[in-house]
């Protein structure tokens, strides 16, 4: 894809976003939406044409991507903060879908639970806490600072310049990446992971052999139990009839969540602890910050002091 197409699309979508940010009549908004969609569509079309036929992502990626971008745009253009937060939930949900596409199931659900379920609810609570006092008679009107954006032109210009550069980088960069690991390499890596999980191996072998109770002796070969031959994963079991090779089923290999957990505690233990500390400190900080601080005027302080003195006098008497 030629960079000029990307830049032109950037300019177009920049104009669209600028128009959407400014308060404007509905017709202009429609034009802006159409302009933005056209820019995105053009880029997508050019991108699809650039790749090999089988390489393009599945169609559902485009669906989720479009929902994400649209929700994000709506989030920053909506005048009411509550709606902005809800649109952000939408962004989170659709990106969770993208995570699923990327075979990161655990992260997808964690994202929904933590972001949409916890963080966004906090935002909503705060939004409600900080709600403007409404005069009952007046028509519900958002405050001026929610309606009018600040310096949209400069912001959009800077942002889309950045997008142009980033897009150029991405499109030029992915071609130069080393090839993705092959299926065999991935299998080997999975077998290595499995070697770190002996109980899982044992359970799989027992299930395979149907021997639930007898002693099971797995033969070690240079520190490994699980081996890979071609596509088959097997273990050597020392049984009555000599050493027996047991092929493991595909689902004996670890799943995504197991791999993530393993990586967390084996590769990033310190980071995990630090994350815990950060959360703890954040909790303390939030508790301290959220305490209501009562500010007394001088008169009130004086009155309180007088009352105290009086009480002391009375006690003394």
């Amino acid at each position: 894809m030629a960079p000029t197409i990307l830049y032109t699309a950037c300019v177009g979508s920049a104009i669209a976003l600028y128009l959407l940010l400014r308060p404007a009549p509905g017709s202009i908004k429609v034009v802006a939406v159409l302009l933005g969609l056209a820019a995105i569509g053009w880029v997508v079309k050019e991108a699809a044409r650039a790749g090999e036929p089988g390489e393009a992502p599945v169609l559902i990626f485009y669906l989720f991507g479009l929902i994400t971008v649209a929700a994000a745009v709506r989030m920053i253009t909506h005048h009411r903060p509550i709606y902005a937060a809800l649109y952000f939930v939408m962004v989170v949900l659709s990106s969770a879908g993208l995570f699923l596409l990327l075979e990161a199931e655990f992260m997808a659900f964690a994202l929904v639970i933590v972001y949409a379920g916890a963080i966004l609810i906090t935002y909503l609570f705060v939004l409600m806490l900080a709600r403007q006092v409404e005069n009952p008679g007046e028509q519900m009107m958002q405050p001026e600072y929610d309606r009018l954006p600040r310096e949209p032109a400069a912001a959009v210009m800077v942002g889309f310049m950045l997008l142009g550069v980033l897009g150029d980088m991405v499109l030029g960069g992915v071609g130069e990446l080393p090839p993705s690991p092959s299926r065999l390499q991935q299998r080997l890596a999975a077998v290595e992971k499995l070697n770190l999980l002996p109980r899982r191996v044992e359970a799989a072998v027992r299930a395979e052999l149907g021997r639930q109770t007898e002693a099971l002796v797995l033969v070690d070969g240079d520190g490994r139990r699980v081996h890979l031959a071609g596509e088959t994963v097997y273990v050597n079991v020392d049984g009555p009839g000599g050493i027996q090779q047991v092929t493991l089923p595909e689902d004996a290999l670890p799943e995504n969540i197991e791999v993530v957990g393993l990586a967390l505690i084996s590769d990033f233990p310190v980071s995990l602890e630090l994350a815990g500390v950060i959360l703890l400190m954040a909790m303390f900080g939030a508790v301290v910050l959220a305490q209501r601080q009562i500010e007394l005027s001088d008169q009130e302080k004086q009155a309180a002091a007088n009352a105290e003195a009086k009480a002391a006098q009375e006690r003394g008497r």
Binding site: R150, A154, A155, V158, L162, V165, D168
Partner: peptide, 23 residues
């Protein structure tokens, strides 16, 4: 003193660096 101005300056600076490095 307005946060947005600082944010724009910062983003603009980052953009400039990116432009210089890649373009």
């Amino acid at each position: 003193g307005i946060l947005h101005s600082y944010a724009i300056s910062m983003a603009g600076g980052a953009t400039l660096v990116a432009v210089l490095v890649f373009l």
